[in-house]
Design a protein around this nucleic acid. Structure first.
Lengths: 340, 340
DNA sequence: ATTAGCACTCGTTAAATATGAGTGCTAATA
DNA sequence: TATTAGCACTCATATTTAACGAGTGCTAAT
């Protein structure tokens, strides 16, 4: 168990280190207003804290820096749970509101906002449309051999794709096919569309051969629509300002990793569903993010479950402020009304 | 005018420097098989080449490096105009063909291909839809207050947007409005849609007030559709392998610049229309690309004018190979058939 | 239990030195 | 007259050495 003084010292070390990125020594600490003990006393406590694995020294004659365990303790015990500042949240809500009413743009805006607020890179993931269900299929002819297939989900998301037929197809055949698709497939989760279409096609009688042939055309393209969750990166260049990313060895893996949209999406989707979750340093298990901490949270837009937003900074990130801002943003998003 | 030997030496210096990124000295050159002169002779010619501004030395006791003027001379006189290697082009065409028939994906694939071929970063810009004209507007209701507006261009590109009405709108009013929009606006360039709609609205009689009110809803969202030219970056991380980008001072401006999609798009759109154009070093006028050269070319897909593709590398780039590969790719794109 | 004092460690910085690739010039050579 | 060998000179880079100083751990005094 930590004594009150040790707690005070641990907190001071981390606060100081978060600000300066420099190992902090006993003498520096003893000069702080909130620490009234001599440097020697602090040194003794520091030795204890080090024994407990909460802090460590880069080398013998340097000050101490927090260990990952130390950060974990700090986040769990010393970061007060989010108290939403009503005024600030209102202001954020206002800024979001005036940007747009398109959910896509709102989310981008939220990511940018969060990044500007914290100076860390952010990633926002829109709703995973695999979970949504088909609300409607429609077709709009362009010319004799081409047309646009539209699919609409229950959440109101729309995707379109241009299709081209091998040969001319009679309008009524298309109409019939679309009706068929609507009759049989509405309500199917987007992710299962492909399988379900296969099943439906198998059920068709040979008598419906003609529809079948042409339907295949539409099916092929319809199922090819894999509405990707929309991903947005905010403040990518913020990383350049972090002292721990001033060398290529650290910068490169980070940038290469963050630019892999697909991997990034999977990662965000794989995160446990939670309100606000802090992952410290190597906890996240990603080599490129060894020296990063991540604050993630699921968010709702207009009260409806929506997606995930994450904030990525160096392990030496300002957790208190980060958690605070994350809380504000998701609260602001929650309050944002889409349809008014 | 350059003597034959000077030409030989200039070429050797540039070829050598392109490969090693190191200043090349007279002794190194004299050891090449194709240069049979003594280092002293070469030194004399080098002094002359330097007087002419074709090469320069980083400092007194270093070898020479090509100047921008030197590269320009090299590109204009020593890079043979593209001879398409039929076998290679065929292979590229094959690889493009099997990736997809969607123009969007084909272009991405082409950018990636070109980047892999050359190890430089590439940027591909799709067709500028501002130039296309409206072929059709359509509307598909989702529920009482919402629907999808579709616009189709003469080139077959489709964009959609979900709109929401303030209040319930009668289906026949919508139908009428859509008919009106189609009647009056088909053939209008996308870029002028906004102005044209304003003009049309002004022409309406007060008697058509009802349509007018509701139309405004649609108009507002329709003209908001600014189909952005699709931009694709290939091999962004290739830059990390270039020796001139191993320091943050050079790397950072480049990365920050390349990540600004909008600026990038404008830049590509502003390039002069040409087959293959090489811009060397500061010629491009972009501070972040001071030390880069760019090979750009307009390309056609399936024979139809389409967009612009660019290859960005250090000034010390392999122009010969770069120009060659660029030629192959645009030829392969030209031959790629979209509809078969 | 706390603090002052002191020897010791070790990363950082600066100065001193050595190295060597490359040049320009001059004189010898073909 | 054009080429080449020879040599003194330059200057970025690498290596060594020394000085510095922030910080520690331990011991003894308070």
């Amino acid at each position: 168990m930590l004594t009150d003084r040790q707690l005070l010292i641990l907190r001071a070390i981390i606060d100081d280190y978060i600000q300066t990125a420099q190992p902090v020594g006993s003498r520096t600490l003893s000069k702080r207003d909130d620490l009234t003990f001599s440097s020697a006393t602090i040194r003794n406590d520091m030795a204890d804290l080090e024994d407990m694995g909460l802090i460590e020294k880069p080398h013998t004659s340097a000050g101490r820096i927090p260990s990952e365990v130390g950060y974990r303790y700090y986040v769990d015990h010393l970061v007060e749970k989010q108290i939403i500042d009503e005024r600030e949240t209102g202001r954020l809500e206002e800024r979001l509101k005036q940007s747009s009413k398109e959910s896509e743009i709102l989310i981008r805006q939220a990511a940018d906002l969060l990044s500007d607020l914290t100076n860390y890179t952010t990633v926002a993931l829109g709703p995973n449309s695999q979970m949504e269900t088909l609300a409607r299929v429609d077709f709009m002819p362009l010319d004799e051999r081409r047309g646009v297939v539209l699919i609409v989900t229950d959440q109101g998301h729309v995707e379109h794709r241009t299709v081209m037929f091998e040969s001319r197809v009679a309008p009524d055949v298309i109409e019939e096919t679309i009706r068929l698709l609507n009759d049989r497939l509405v309500g199917t989760p987007i992710g299962q569309l492909k399988i379900r279409i296969g099943e439906e096609v198998a059920k068709l009688q040979l008598a419906q051969r003609q529809q079948y042939e042409n339907m295949m055309q539409l099916i092929q393209s319809t199922l090819g629509i894999q509405t990707p969750s929309s991903l947005y990166l905010g403040g990518k260049k913020k990383i350049f300002n972090q002292p721990e990313f001033q060398t290529l060895d650290t910068l490169r893996p980070f940038l290469e990793w963050i630019d892999e949209q697909e991997r990034l999406t999977h990662w965000l989707e794989s995160l446990p569903n939670r309100e606000i979750y802090v992952s410290i340093g190597s906890e996240n298990g990603i080599v490129a993010l060894q020296n990063c901490s991540v604050i993630t949270s699921d968010y709702t837009l207009d009260g409806k479950t929506f997606g995930t937003i994450a904030m990525i900074g160096p392990t030496r990130m300002n957790y208190r402020h980060g958690v605070q801002m994350m809380g504000q943003i998701i609260e602001a998003l929650r309050r944002t009304k889409l349809d008014e």
